[in-house]
């Protein structure tokens, strides 16, 4: 990693940790001076950017912005799935799954591979029919599939314009909103090439931005962080909390259990049994 890239990464990591931007600039500038004076490689002098940013954050005693401990009264029920049953051939994938999510809540759908997490999400989105059961939906829907969902030959701005037009947004507004969401995920889509040339992680960012465009009330996200680096993963959860605080209803499929303390509802689809527990 060269010095500029390291400094840039440090800047991002500091920002992510909620360090005051002015202070972050000072820290980065000071590190730059030190590196020039000492002629050392950044990794040798300071270690990885995220570790150094963590040490800085600890020193200045800034609150590490994690899940905001917000507990306002839950809003109205936005998504209600009742008795969802789905069989693939003769194998029962979902057997009577219930899920209720309110405005301003995040529900995590967890479980082993192949236990029907994506199927449940697609059923909630209306992209697949269940064998039994129904889904009640209050409001507009945004859906982020696990893969696909983008057009190989279009550039990100065109994706924003396309989704925006569906939501009744003007093109300029859609592109601006898309770029703003992208910036929150530490991605600058201006001048990015066609979607087929984007890396896996970046394409997922595009996917996620498309899902959030036009402010849908309910967001269904199917493991949208695949291919994200650690920093983007942190950004992703911060975006989720921002959406929650804005009163959105979020259902996110995940197999990473380290974030479960930061969601409101956990639906465990581990085979044959379904349990819904209030976190």
């Amino acid at each position: 990693m060269n010095t500029d890239a390291w400094l840039h990464a440090l800047d991002g990591e500091l920002r992510r940790r909620g360090i005051d931007p002015a202070l972050a600039r000072h820290v980065v500038a000071e590190a730059a001076v030190h590196l020039r004076d000492s002629r050392q490689a950044p990794l040798a002098a300071f270690g990885p950017p995220d570790a150094y940013a963590a040490a800085v954050a600890e020193s200045v005693g800034s609150p590490v912005r994690s899940a905001p401990h917000r507990r306002s009264a839950p809003g109205p029920v936005r998504l209600e799935a009742r008795g969802i049953v789905k069989r693939h051939r003769r194998r029962t994938v979902l057997s009577g799954v219930d899920l209720t999510v309110r405005a301003g809540e995040i529900a995590a759908v967890v479980g082993a591979n192949g236990c029907g997490k994506s199927t449940l999400l697609r059923i909630c989105a209306g992209l697949e029919s269940p064998d039994r059961g129904e889904v009640r939906l209050r409001g507009t829907l945004g859906f982020c599939p696990q893969d696909g969902g983008t057009s190989d030959f279009l550039v990100p701005d065109e994706h924003f314009a396309l989704v925006g037009a569906g939501r009744g947004m003007r093109r300029g507004a859609a592109v601006r909103a898309g770029r703003a969401y992208a910036a929150a995920l530490d991605w600058d889509p201006a001048g990015a090439g066609q979607a087929r040339f984007l890396s896996g992680g970046t394409r997922q960012k595009l996917n996620l931005v498309m899902a959030g465009l036009g402010d849908p009330d309910v967001l269904l996200l199917d493991e949208p962080y695949q291919g994200f680096d650690r920093g983007s993963y942190v950004d992703f959860w911060r975006q989720l909390w921002a959406w929650r605080d804005a009163g959105k209803t979020i259902v996110v499929v995940t197999h990473l259990l380290d974030q479960l303390d930061r969601v409101d509802t956990v639906l465990d689809l581990t085979p044959a049994r379904t349990t819904e527990a209030r976190a």
């Binding site: 989105a125 209306g126 992209l127 507009t140 829907l141 945004g142 859906f143 599939p145 696909g148 969902g149 983008t150 057009s151 190989d152 030959f153 396309l162 989704v163 569906g166 939501r167 009744g168 498309m210 899902a211 465009l213 036009g214």
Partner: peptide
């Protein structure tokens, strides 16, 4: 090419006719 994209556009306010 549109197979992956159209279902999500359908959810984003487009009718099949559009």
């Amino acid at each position: 090419a549109a197979r992956g994209l159209e279902p999500r556009l359908r959810l984003s306010g487009y009718g099949t006719g559009h």
